[in-house]
Protein backbone atom coordinates (compact mmCIF):
# COMPACT_ATOMS: atom_id res chain seq x y z
CA UNK A 1 0.00 0.00 0.00
CA UNK A 2 1.08 3.55 -0.51
CA UNK A 3 0.39 5.32 2.74
CA UNK A 4 0.33 9.04 3.43
CA UNK A 5 0.23 10.75 6.77
CA UNK A 6 -0.26 14.41 7.67
CA UNK A 7 1.71 15.68 10.69
CA UNK A 8 1.75 19.13 12.20
CA UNK A 9 4.47 20.51 14.45
CA UNK A 10 2.89 22.10 17.53
CA UNK A 11 4.02 23.14 21.01
CA UNK A 12 4.41 20.16 23.31
CA UNK A 13 1.29 19.16 25.21
CA UNK A 14 2.91 20.14 28.51
CA UNK A 15 4.48 23.40 27.26
CA UNK A 16 3.52 26.53 29.17
CA UNK A 17 1.69 28.71 26.69
CA UNK A 18 1.64 32.49 26.98
CA UNK A 19 -0.31 34.83 24.74
CA UNK A 20 1.95 37.26 22.86
CA UNK A 21 1.61 41.02 23.11
CA UNK A 22 -0.34 41.18 19.83
CA UNK A 23 -3.13 39.15 21.45
CA UNK A 24 -3.34 36.95 18.35
CA UNK A 25 -0.42 34.60 18.68
CA UNK A 26 1.55 32.79 21.35
CA UNK A 27 5.07 33.36 22.66
CA UNK A 28 7.28 30.81 20.91
CA UNK A 29 10.55 31.53 22.75
CA UNK A 30 11.56 28.69 25.01
CA UNK A 31 8.61 26.53 23.95
CA UNK A 32 9.42 22.94 23.04
CA UNK A 33 7.87 21.63 19.85
CA UNK A 34 6.84 18.18 18.76
CA UNK A 35 4.43 16.40 16.49
CA UNK A 36 0.83 17.01 17.55
CA UNK A 37 -0.43 14.17 19.75
CA UNK A 38 -3.27 13.00 17.46
CA UNK A 39 -0.94 13.11 14.46
CA UNK A 40 1.29 10.73 16.41
CA UNK A 41 -1.58 8.23 16.35
CA UNK A 42 -1.82 8.81 12.60
CA UNK A 43 1.90 8.07 12.18
CA UNK A 44 1.64 4.99 14.36
CA UNK A 45 -1.34 3.71 12.34
CA UNK A 46 0.55 4.33 9.10
CA UNK A 47 3.45 2.25 10.42
CA UNK A 48 1.18 -0.55 11.59
CA UNK A 49 -0.58 -0.56 8.22
CA UNK A 50 2.75 -0.86 6.45
CA UNK A 51 3.87 -3.63 8.82
CA UNK A 52 0.73 -5.57 7.94
CA UNK A 53 0.27 -4.80 4.26
CA UNK A 54 3.71 -3.66 3.10
CA UNK A 55 4.35 -0.56 1.05
CA UNK A 56 5.74 2.90 1.66
CA UNK A 57 4.92 5.78 4.01
CA UNK A 58 5.27 9.43 3.06
CA UNK A 59 4.51 12.17 5.59
CA UNK A 60 3.29 15.67 4.73
CA UNK A 61 3.72 18.76 6.85
CA UNK A 62 2.91 22.41 6.26
CA UNK A 63 5.11 24.45 8.54
CA UNK A 64 8.33 26.18 9.39
CA UNK A 65 11.65 25.10 7.85
CA UNK A 66 12.84 24.26 11.39
CA UNK A 67 10.26 21.45 11.51
CA UNK A 68 12.78 19.03 10.07
CA UNK A 69 14.15 18.32 13.56
CA UNK A 70 10.79 17.09 14.86
CA UNK A 71 10.02 15.23 11.64
CA UNK A 72 13.26 13.29 11.86
CA UNK A 73 12.84 12.28 15.48
CA UNK A 74 9.02 12.01 15.53
CA UNK A 75 8.20 10.55 12.11
CA UNK A 76 11.22 9.25 10.19
CA UNK A 77 12.80 7.62 13.26
CA UNK A 78 9.59 5.74 13.96
CA UNK A 79 9.19 4.26 10.49
CA UNK A 80 7.99 6.89 8.01
CA UNK A 81 10.08 6.40 4.85
CA UNK A 82 10.29 9.99 3.68
CA UNK A 83 8.87 13.37 4.53
CA UNK A 84 7.63 16.31 2.50
CA UNK A 85 7.77 19.64 4.31
CA UNK A 86 5.87 22.47 2.64
CA UNK A 87 7.45 25.59 4.08
CA UNK A 88 4.48 27.92 3.94
CA UNK A 89 2.42 29.61 6.61
CA UNK A 90 -1.21 29.82 5.43
CA UNK A 91 -3.57 31.99 7.42
CA UNK A 92 -6.34 29.44 7.98
CA UNK A 93 -7.05 25.68 8.03
CA UNK A 94 -8.37 25.69 4.47
CA UNK A 95 -5.04 27.07 3.23
CA UNK A 96 -3.18 24.30 5.04
CA UNK A 97 -5.55 21.66 3.65
CA UNK A 98 -5.13 22.97 0.09
CA UNK A 99 -1.35 22.70 0.35
CA UNK A 100 -1.53 19.21 1.88
CA UNK A 101 -3.94 18.04 -0.82
CA UNK A 102 -1.72 19.49 -3.54
CA UNK A 103 1.36 17.78 -2.10
CA UNK A 104 -0.49 14.46 -1.82
CA UNK A 105 -1.71 14.78 -5.41
CA UNK A 106 1.70 15.76 -6.70
CA UNK A 107 3.22 12.67 -5.08
CA UNK A 108 0.25 10.55 -6.26
CA UNK A 109 -0.72 6.90 -5.98
CA UNK A 110 -1.88 6.79 -2.34
CA UNK A 111 -4.30 4.18 -1.03
CA UNK A 112 -4.84 5.89 2.27
CA UNK A 113 -3.86 9.09 4.08
CA UNK A 114 -3.95 9.33 7.87
CA UNK A 115 -4.40 12.53 9.85
CA UNK A 116 -4.99 13.26 13.52
CA UNK A 117 -8.60 14.09 14.44
CA UNK A 118 -7.37 17.62 15.22
CA UNK A 119 -4.14 19.32 16.19
CA UNK A 120 -3.51 20.18 19.81
CA UNK A 121 -2.66 23.83 19.14
CA UNK A 122 -5.64 25.16 17.15
CA UNK A 123 -8.12 22.30 17.66
CA UNK A 124 -10.09 23.14 14.53
CA UNK A 125 -10.94 19.52 13.63
CA UNK A 126 -10.96 20.51 9.95
CA UNK A 127 -7.83 19.36 8.15
CA UNK A 128 -8.68 15.71 7.52
CA UNK A 129 -12.16 16.53 6.27
CA UNK A 130 -10.99 19.34 4.02
CA UNK A 131 -8.16 17.28 2.54
CA UNK A 132 -10.59 14.43 1.78
CA UNK A 133 -13.04 16.84 0.18
CA UNK A 134 -10.33 18.51 -1.92
CA UNK A 135 -9.10 15.10 -3.10
CA UNK A 136 -12.62 13.76 -3.57
CA UNK A 137 -11.86 10.68 -1.42
CA UNK A 138 -13.83 8.71 1.15
CA UNK A 139 -13.38 9.99 4.69
CA UNK A 140 -14.00 8.87 8.26
CA UNK A 141 -13.39 11.02 11.33
CA UNK A 142 -12.38 10.06 14.86
CA UNK A 143 -11.44 6.49 14.06
CA UNK A 144 -10.66 4.10 16.91
CA UNK A 145 -10.33 0.83 14.97
CA UNK A 146 -9.45 0.11 11.37
CA UNK A 147 -9.10 -2.82 8.97
CA UNK A 148 -8.23 -3.07 5.29
CA UNK A 149 -9.17 -5.82 2.87
CA UNK A 150 -8.31 -5.40 -0.78
CA UNK A 151 -9.48 -1.96 -1.79
CA UNK A 152 -12.03 -1.88 1.02
CA UNK A 153 -11.74 -0.47 4.52
CA UNK A 154 -13.81 -0.85 7.66
CA UNK A 155 -13.45 1.88 10.28
CA UNK A 156 -14.98 2.22 13.74
CA UNK A 157 -15.60 5.75 14.91
CA UNK A 158 -16.51 7.15 18.28
CA UNK A 159 -19.73 9.09 18.57
CA UNK A 160 -21.15 10.88 21.56
CA UNK A 161 -22.58 8.98 24.52
CA UNK A 162 -20.29 6.01 23.91
CA UNK A 163 -21.97 4.99 20.67
CA UNK A 164 -19.67 3.41 18.10
CA UNK A 165 -20.37 3.59 14.41
CA UNK A 166 -18.80 1.21 11.90
CA UNK A 167 -18.20 2.72 8.46
CA UNK A 168 -17.16 0.71 5.41
CA UNK A 169 -15.88 2.20 2.18
CA UNK A 170 -13.60 2.02 -0.81
CA UNK A 171 -10.05 3.30 -0.98
CA UNK A 172 -8.52 5.78 -1.41
CA UNK A 173 -9.60 7.32 1.87
CA UNK A 174 -8.57 9.89 4.43
CA UNK A 175 -8.75 8.48 7.95
CA UNK A 176 -8.59 10.87 10.90
CA UNK A 177 -7.32 9.18 14.03
CA UNK A 178 -8.68 9.35 17.56
CA UNK A 179 -7.08 8.54 20.92
CA UNK A 180 -7.44 4.81 21.52
CA UNK A 181 -6.76 3.71 17.94
CA UNK A 182 -3.29 2.55 18.92
CA UNK A 183 -0.43 3.06 21.35
CA UNK A 184 2.41 5.11 19.96
CA UNK A 185 5.78 3.36 19.98
CA UNK A 186 9.13 4.79 21.07
CA UNK A 187 11.84 5.31 18.49
CA UNK A 188 14.61 2.77 18.74
CA UNK A 189 17.83 4.71 19.23
CA UNK A 190 19.57 3.25 16.14
CA UNK A 191 16.53 4.32 14.09
CA UNK A 192 17.02 7.92 15.25
CA UNK A 193 20.49 7.72 13.71
CA UNK A 194 19.15 6.16 10.48
CA UNK A 195 16.46 8.84 10.26
CA UNK A 196 19.17 11.45 9.78
CA UNK A 197 19.81 9.98 6.35
CA UNK A 198 16.20 9.47 5.24
CA UNK A 199 14.87 11.81 2.50
CA UNK A 200 13.18 14.97 3.71
CA UNK A 201 12.13 17.38 0.96
CA UNK A 202 11.59 20.99 1.92
CA UNK A 203 9.49 22.60 -0.81
CA UNK A 204 7.58 25.80 -1.43
CA UNK A 205 3.96 25.91 -2.58
CA UNK A 206 5.10 26.40 -6.19
CA UNK A 207 7.01 23.10 -6.28
CA UNK A 208 3.87 21.11 -5.50
CA UNK A 209 1.60 23.21 -7.67
CA UNK A 210 -0.32 24.32 -4.60
CA UNK A 211 -1.84 27.60 -3.59
CA UNK A 212 -3.13 28.29 -0.10
CA UNK A 213 -5.22 31.16 -1.42
CA UNK A 214 -6.40 34.06 0.69
CA UNK A 215 -7.36 33.19 4.25
CA UNK A 216 -11.12 33.11 4.79
CA UNK A 217 -10.89 33.16 8.53
CA UNK A 218 -8.48 34.76 10.95
CA UNK A 219 -7.76 34.73 14.67
CA UNK A 220 -9.35 37.76 16.33
CA UNK A 221 -8.15 37.40 19.85
CA UNK A 222 -6.41 34.86 22.11
CA UNK A 223 -6.87 34.92 25.85
CA UNK A 224 -5.71 32.57 28.61
CA UNK A 225 -8.46 30.87 30.56
CA UNK A 226 -9.60 32.85 33.60
CA UNK A 227 -7.69 32.13 36.79
CA UNK A 228 -9.25 29.38 38.86
CA UNK A 229 -11.24 30.91 41.73
CA UNK A 230 -10.28 29.90 45.24
CA UNK A 231 -11.99 26.77 46.57
CA UNK A 232 -14.58 26.91 49.33
CA UNK A 233 -14.07 25.05 52.59
CA UNK A 234 -17.19 23.42 54.00
CA UNK A 235 -17.33 23.64 57.78
CA UNK A 236 -18.77 21.10 60.22
CA UNK A 237 -18.42 17.42 61.00
CA UNK A 238 -18.34 14.80 58.27
CA UNK A 239 -22.09 14.10 58.19
CA UNK A 240 -23.06 17.80 58.07
CA UNK A 241 -20.33 18.62 55.56
CA UNK A 242 -21.37 15.78 53.26
CA UNK A 243 -24.99 16.98 53.30
CA UNK A 244 -23.89 20.52 52.56
CA UNK A 245 -21.64 19.31 49.75
CA UNK A 246 -24.49 17.42 48.11
CA UNK A 247 -26.74 20.47 48.46
CA UNK A 248 -24.12 22.73 46.85
CA UNK A 249 -23.49 20.30 44.00
CA UNK A 250 -27.22 19.99 43.34
CA UNK A 251 -28.49 23.52 43.92
CA UNK A 252 -25.53 25.77 43.12
CA UNK A 253 -23.28 23.86 40.73
CA UNK A 254 -26.27 21.96 39.30
CA UNK A 255 -24.13 18.96 38.44
CA UNK A 256 -26.26 16.38 40.26
Amino acid sequence: MKIGVCAKITPDADARIKVAADGQSIVLDGVKFGISDYDEYAIEEAIRTKEKHGGEIVSFTVGDASADKQLRSGALALGVDRSVLVTENPGDPLGIAKLLAAAIQKEGGFDVVFTGKSTIDQQNFQIGTMVAELLGWAHVTQVTALEFEGNQFKATRNMDAGIRQVVAGTLPAVISCEDGLNTVRYAKLPDIMKAKKKPLDSVGAGAIGGDAGAARSSVGNLAPPPARPAGRMIEGDAATAAKELVRLLRDEAKVL
Binding site: K69, S73, A77, A187, L189, I192, M193
Partner: peptide, 11 residues
Protein backbone atom coordinates in the same frame (compact mmCIF):
# COMPACT_ATOMS: atom_id res chain seq x y z
CA UNK B 1 24.61 17.84 19.79
CA UNK B 2 21.18 17.93 18.09
CA UNK B 3 21.30 14.20 17.41
CA UNK B 4 22.60 13.55 20.90
CA UNK B 5 19.68 15.45 22.39
CA UNK B 6 17.19 13.56 20.17
CA UNK B 7 18.54 10.34 21.64
CA UNK B 8 18.30 11.66 25.19
CA UNK B 9 14.78 12.95 24.62
CA UNK B 10 13.48 9.60 23.43
CA UNK B 11 15.30 7.83 26.25
Amino acid sequence: LETAMSLLEEY
